[in-house]
Structures are given as structure tokens and as C-alpha cells.
């Protein structure tokens, strides 16, 4: 590390852009490589399979510019994306941004709440476990985390739905009408995120607690709360902050299944629907959104790390 702030920002921005480029290119190339007629497929998705006529297909082809040479389409496509002009959905005809934006809001809400719930659950458990490595709390938390991490989240979510929604009728089954509808998806997401987080927090705490600085402070008779706040807190939490990009990645991997399971109208469901309907603009725009979100999460984590760890700012070696 030891990069200056400007270089860091530039590097992250370039990386996010590169990832977005890869995703968009993948979408485009995969689409072009498909056998069969793209225009026909999109027309079938838009109007219904039995109502498609040859004239409709041709009109659609001309309208969506699908009759130009491939490289030209690719170039125009990239240029549009770079300018933020995502065009319209090939299926609904609505502007892509109008399709994506409200659903993005829901997904972000569930993701943020899930992350928060995971932090509330895993952080105290991990930190408490790390204070006494090898103790009963540590072993219990580690065992529980290993079990939870091995369970597929969609199966867990399904079981929760049956138990809490159908049998006990405590919570609604599916959809996103009320805040209560979000409880089960958030809990399922948190259950998927918590094990890794608890393990990282435990490790960070164990290292910080056993460090020379902590022992020394204790020997000098510094009050425990003071030690906890001033000496232990930052070294213990640095690994947790560094783990945030991994958590963000886990969220993007987990929420698609969760949205399908609980029938939430977020970008996960939109992605699956658009993929099956071969709605190219929406898929690529969603890929861009994912890449940017992950890049932002990574950048946020790195900036926080720089703020927390003076060694990074000074440009020296870490640990």
C-alpha cells in the first residue's frame, strides 16, 4: 500500500470501469453468439410467442438497430453506455433507467439492512469470542459459524418461510408491500453474511487482545474500558473493515436467490427475467450497476482503512 489518495481513487475508478467493460462486453458477445434470431426472440418476449409476425420482427430489427454490422453495434453500444444512455428495454420499451432505478432502491435497502443485521449479530459475537481464544464462547461461536456457513441460504430461507410465515403466521410470506415483508429476506441474508464476519472479527480481536501493546497497557494498570477503546478497538476492527468488500461480494451473490425466493421486485429478479428474455440493454445496465456498487464498496472500505490505520497513510509497510 502506501499509495497517495489520488492514485488510489484513480486506480479504483479504473478498475470499476474495467469490470463494467468486461461485463458489458460479455453480455454483448454472448448475445451475438447465440444461435437463432435475436430479433425474433425479443419480439416473442415482447408480444407473446403466438402473436409474432415476420413484419413485426423486421420492424423490431430496424428499430433496435440489429441489422448493422456487429462491430458497429458494439462500438455504438459502448459509446452509449459511457454516456449514460442506456436506451430502452427491448421487452417493455420503457427507458432502462426507469426499469432499474426503483428496483435498485429495494435491493439496496434489503442489502443494507441485511449487512446491518449481520454486523449487529456477528460483530459482538466475534469480538466476545476473540477476547478469550479457545474458551467455550469461542468454540461455540466457531462451531455455530461453521454450521451456518455450510447451509445453503436459499434452503434456510425456505425453511424460515415455512416455519415463521406458514405455520406460525408471524410474518408475511412473500412480496415487498410492507416493512414486515422485508424481515425474512433480511434475516436470511444476514445468516449468510454472519459466519464469515464473525470469524474475521474473532481473529482481529484475538490478535489485538494478545498484542504486546494490550498486555503492556494492562500491566500499567490502565482501566479496562480505556484499553478496549484506545488500544484494542482499532487493530481489532481493521480486519473487519478490510473484509467489507468480500461482504459486498457475498451480498451480490446471495441476494439474487433471496429475491427469487421471497418474490422481491429488486434488481436480482429483474436480472433473471431480463436474462431469460434476452433483454440486452437491461442486462448490461445491471452489470454496470453491480460493478459500480462493488467498486464503491471496495473504495469505501479502503478509504476507511486509510483513516483507521496510520501506517497506510505514512506509506510504510503494514503488519
Amino acid at each position: 500500500m502506501g499509495l497517495s489518495l489520488a492514485r488510489l481513487l484513480a486506480a479504483r475508478l479504473a478498475q470499476a470501469g474495467l469490470v463494467a467493460l468486461v461485463v458489458a462486453t460479455l453480455c454483448f458477445a454472448a448475445l451475438q453468439a447465440l444461435p437463432g434470431d435475436l430479433a425474433l426472440r425479443v419480439a416473442a418476449a415482447r408480444f407473446g410467442e403466438d402473436r409474432v409476425s415476420a413484419a413485426m420482427v423486421e420492424a423490431l430489427r430496424a428499430e433496435a438497430g440489429l441489422d448493422r454490422p456487429v462491430l458497429l453495434q458494439y462500438g455504438a453500444w459502448l459509446a452509449d453506455l459511457a454516456r449514460g444512455r442506456f436506451g430502452r428495454s427491448l421487452v417493455t420499451g420503457q427507458p432502462v433507467l426507469a426499469e432499474v432505478a426503483p428496483r435498485l432502491g429495494l435491493t439496496l435497502r434489503v442489502g443494507a439492512l441485511g449487512l446491518l443485521a449481520a454486523l449487529l449479530l456477528a460483530l459482538p459475537a466475534g469480538l466476545a469470542a476473540g477476547r478469550r481464544p479457545g474458551g467455550w464462547l469461542d468454540r461455540g461461536v466457531a462451531a455455530l459459524a461453521a454450521l451456518l456457513a455450510s447451509a445453503p441460504s436459499f434452503a434456510l430461507g425456505g425453511v424460515l418461510v415455512v416455519l415463521l410465515s406458514v405455520r406460525l403466521r408471524w410474518l408475511p410470506v412473500a412480496g415487498d408491500a410492507t416493512p414486515w415483508h422485508l424481515v425474512l429476506p433480511v434475516v436470511t441474508l444476514a445468516a449468510a453474511l454472519a459466519p464469515g464476519l464473525a470469524r474475521v472479527a474473532r481473529h482481529g480481536m484475538a490478535e489485538a487482545h494478545g498484542a504486546y501493546a494490550t498486555q503492556f497497557a494492562r500491566m500499567r494498570g490502565v482501566a479496562p474500558w480505556r484499553i478496549g477503546l484506545r488500544v484494542v478497538a482499532r487493530p481489532a476492527l481493521v480486519p473487519v473493515v478490510a473484509y467489507l468488500p468480500v461482504l459486498a461480494m457475498q451480498v451480490t451473490e446471495g441476494f439474487i436467490a433471496i429475491e427469487m425466493l421471497f418474490n422481491l421486485d429488486g434488481i436480482g429478479q429483474l436480472l433473471i427475467r431480463s436474462l431469460m428474455a434476452r433483454d440486452l440493454p437491461v442486462v448490461a445496465a445491471l452489470g454496470l450497476a453491480f460493478a459500480l456498487l462493488l467498486g464503491a464498496a471496495t473504495l469505501l472500505a479502503e478509504l476507511s482503512l486509510r483513516a483507521m490505520d496510520p501506517r497506510l497513510r505514512a506509506g510504510g509497510a503494514t503488519a
Partner: peptide, 16 residues
Amino acid sequence: YACPALLLVLVATELL
């Protein structure tokens, strides 16, 4: 490392 793995596998598998 920064690439969202599941997303890419999802898109590639469905489209290819």
C-alpha cells in the same frame, strides 16, 4: 478479484 463471480457465471451460462 473485483469481478462479481456469480453474476458473470450467471450471465455467461444463461447466454452462452
